[in-house]
Nucleic acid binder design. Structure first.
Lengths: 202, 202
DNA sequence: GGTTTATATGAACGGATGTTCATCTCAAAG
DNA sequence: CTTTGAGATGAACATCCGTTCATATAAACC
């Protein structure tokens, strides 16, 4: 049997995973059948159950892996010193990371309601952990006087919503390069948190 | 027969509409059966077809009505004079309007991929029309010198994503009132577009 | 009271759903 | 060359899907 047993890493095999990710993102979890996923991989529906216990686990695995990779990548990222540098690092990291994984991002935002309550809780706690990373930066900058935000929690949610929104319109080969987009968004975020140190008079 | 014929107002009857809206928002279009909607209204599945031609029209009608009401409400809103006043009006209007209709908003954002291509185009053009309202304000403020945005199109999308994000976390009876939320977001938007006229020194 | 007409039923249609399982294939191990 | 045993099949399970339609109900009109 091929089904992974003990470890709690990725339960689902990689070929099935990526086929499911592609289809869930394009058509939605509920609209994709196990037979359709199997056809994408090039096998029959029954064979999928050698690689995943069930459809729900397939979805949960995709979300969990995505969010764990997100947290891990941010933990490993160059952040610089001071709240201002860290906020810029976060903004650029968030856009870069999310633009590189449009399918995973789409699923993680759109398919939450198709998770069982227990799985939903686990995913939500991973998402909160990520939000806390940004909020910590905002609170630190608030205390140091670098930022002036009326409410760090709301600013956190507002910034993340704004940044993740890039995924809904960005297209490769479009008018703006990724790094140009990063810079434009960083400009808006920096000003929004009251961190526009220079170049202002009245 | 009850099915509306000539006019292109709302094809679907109101009781069926609101039951479908509730269920689509909670469980997703693909996961809700006509039988489930019928049960919510208190009838059998077959009777639904007296009120709507099919399931797809039900979804399309919900989205179209929502976006038309959005455009109409903004057209009728008090806007004030000058780019700054109009941007504030837009921010407050957007949050207020969207918080009042969480189900319709959720559906309009999450179920786009379940529209037929023709219906998708019609919905997208309504959404673009709304975005254009904000972009016009930003361009006007840019020309008048009230704002300094690096890219009005990106600023439009960024602001709308940020404002709509309120719907994902706001809960009635929470820490902040609606008007307090409006003010906090307006503060961030105003600063983001470089329109923080007063209260800044360095 | 009788007739029209809107409203609703519930069975039926062909087909799709997630999942299971006995069976088969076929490369590697002994 | 035989024996494994993992990988894959494809039929089968019970159930659900969107939609249609002949039929029933019941209120509105003459």
């Amino acid at each position: 049997m091929a089904r992974k047993t003990g470890s709690h890493a990725q339960i689902t095999g990689p070929r099935v995973r990526s086929a499911a990710q592609k289809l869930f993102a394009r058509m939605g979890y509920a609209a994709v059948s196990m037979r359709r996923i199997a056809a994408e991989v090039g096998m029959q529906a029954g064979a999928l159950y050698l690689y995943t216990p069930d459809k729900q686990t397939l979805l949960f695995d995709l979300m969990k892996t995505h969010l764990e990779e997100l947290l891990q990548a941010w933990a490993a990222a160059e952040k610089g010193k001071g709240a201002m540098a860290q906020l810029e690092a976060f903004v650029r990291f968030h856009i870069r990371f999310h633009l590189a994984r449009p399918d995973a991002v789409f699923i993680a935002y759109m398919e939450l309601r198709n998770l069982t309550p227990e799985n939903f809780e686990r995913i939500e706690s991973l998402r909160r952990a990520y939000e806390n990373q940004l909020e910590a930066i905002l609170r630190q900058g608030q205390e140091s006087g670098d930022f002036r935000v009326p409410d760090t929690k709301l600013a956190t949610l507002a910034i993340i919503a704004m940044l993740t929104g890039v995924n809904t319109w960005y297209r490769e080969g479009g008018r703006l390069s990724r790094s140009r987009v990063e810079s434009i968004y960083w400009d808006m975020v920096r000003k929004a948190v009251g961190g526009d140190d220079a170049a202002r008079i009245a």
